[in-house]
Design a protein around this nucleic acid. Sequence first.
DNA 1: ACCTTTCATTGGAACGTTCCAACAAGTATG
DNA 2: CATACTTGTTGGAACGTTCCAATGAAAGGT
Lengths: 336, 336
Amino acid sequence: MSTSRPTINDVATRAGVSKSLVSLALSGSTKVSDVSRQRIVDAVAELGYRRNAAARSLAVRRSHTIGVLILDLHNPVFAEILDGVQIEVREHGFSTMLISGGADPELEQAEIDTLLQFQVEGLILIAHRLPAHVLTDIAAEVPTVVVTRDDIAVPFMDSVSNDDVAGARMAVDHLVSLGHSRIVHLSGGDNPVSHARADGYRFAMTQHGLAQHIRVVPGGLTDAKGYTAARDALSSAPTALFVANDVAAIGAIAAVENANLRVPEDISVIGYDGISIGGMRRLNLTTIAQPLADLGRLAAQHMLHRINNRTAPATRQHVSATLVIRGTTGPAATKV
Amino acid sequence: MSTSRPTINDVATRAGVSKSLVSLALSGSTKVSDVSRQRIVDAVAELGYRRNAAARSLAVRRSHTIGVLILDLHNPVFAEILDGVQIEVREHGFSTMLISGGADPELEQAEIDTLLQFQVEGLILIAHRLPAHVLTDIAAEVPTVVVTRDDIAVPFMDSVSNDDVAGARMAVDHLVSLGHSRIVHLSGGDNPVSHARADGYRFAMTQHGLAQHIRVVPGGLTDAKGYTAARDALSSAPTALFVANDVAAIGAIAAVENANLRVPEDISVIGYDGISIGGMRRLNLTTIAQPLADLGRLAAQHMLHRINNRTAPATRQHVSATLVIRGTTGPAATKV
DNA sequence: ACCTTTCATTGGAACGTTCCAACAAGTATG
DNA sequence: CATACTTGTTGGAACGTTCCAATGAAAGGT
């Protein structure tokens, strides 16, 4: 007759046993007689009983939940990483509590606080904008791993990211192998990831003896920024554009086509990230693909490992990106 | 010296007051003297104390958390709806616990169970594949609102969705106003949303006296399905395609262009959903845009309302979609 | 000077679990 | 036939909060 949810005690009285035995049975202990177990199972079903996770987590002092902070759900890159996290984490009996950061970095900290109040056993930060000292505090308190960035070293904090410098070199190598030399880089703006990609570009260009052709046009990581950056870049008559990320590359292609140039016949375009929409036929974007879901899985694995070994030394894992050749890159037009 | 997190008792002894007073102060009660409050605040800061949400939720019997089940994070539609949910929910002091359903509908139920174990105060289902009886059980147990579907009526369960029939009519009206008559619909397959959109198409065609031109080509909601469906559709020499959703529309455009036809000069294409990538310059897709974030916000509002009024009659709210004219639709080629 | 209010504070019960020590009732060991 | 183990079961303490009823102190009213 009570309207509220049944508790373990209700189950116990209904099954005619003690609550302790119910608890034992529920956690799959072998020391419960078959007859008791059956009666308990029946009682649970009849009452529609469900464990109270709050009470449980209070008693065992574990939440079996890991917190995930994601910078921006709109960006497909992050959603795909998250997917990998969820799969791995779930396999190990954990749940995730997700918070997507807003525009405001201050808010980001408040949200992490919420996560910590829920006693999450670990924190996965999928891209973040936290200053080093905050990161240090957090990592000291709870196992933490950051995905996508590796620029801040913090004790007891793992990171998993792709090697942006190497990836950028792959992009340049690909273009050079197609005969390009006037390769312009549309940068992603002032953030660590974009800096690394620009560095890789410069390095590879130099290595190919193309130092005199190095040109980095300031851009950004959005469609619109890619568009305007490409428009600016066209002044130097490039034969290829290496764009800081896929979304901006899509914008860049639009700019090229608006200038009455064909992709890839007149200008090749290569992006970075490997977001799944890049594979859509209309876009068909050549890109340096990060193994996004793997990034998420690995992050989760590091987390789970660190939960059992809090003071393990910080690790930085780099996964390698792969060149995915689609339709936006092609041989350079023969020199005129 | 203890390594574990400080509790309210630690704060109390440090501040030289009782735990009750700390609790009071923490919840912002006015009946705490300024001097005590200050000492408590200081102690909290010094110890790095953080409320234990599990204990709290156990004591107050409220979790201040709402559960969100999302069918598929990869689909940008859902991510954008989620965004609206998060904003609204957060404004009211709730947190969200997110679970993204996998391929397996069975798993979906297990995941809802997890959510319920955490004593979420409500459930928002962003697209789901649950049978009516399961839905009924869930809605009886916890305030539930479903977004994107309104085909299953369940007591005490709200739904918010756009009116797919009306939206489809808008699409057809737009094409007709541009002079099109051979308008083919690429359907989204066998699901309630797609059926409604196809119905709207048929209705509008009939109303415009174009009943003899009605043609529905079976397709799907993915890029690839849109591609093949469009290829099939070309056999009947349409001048316009109304595609079940944006992602498939992008695939359809690729098929049209591969057949050496221009969009929109030879064939106009209009999608449905209004995902943000459709606005990217390269795609520039005309579409029937659902107010995605609003859908999420409204769902959250219904939830919050229902939490305080569990037995309110079920509501079905429809929001109206809007026609967003971009570059993939244009005047029909003059009849030959 | 006494009673009543108000204000600030407190101890303790409750929330729903888990887990430990204890214990009966067999069963095996010497 | 006592002793020792197993096997299944149990009550009660603990987890970290909130909240209620009770308390003491200070202030106000007559």
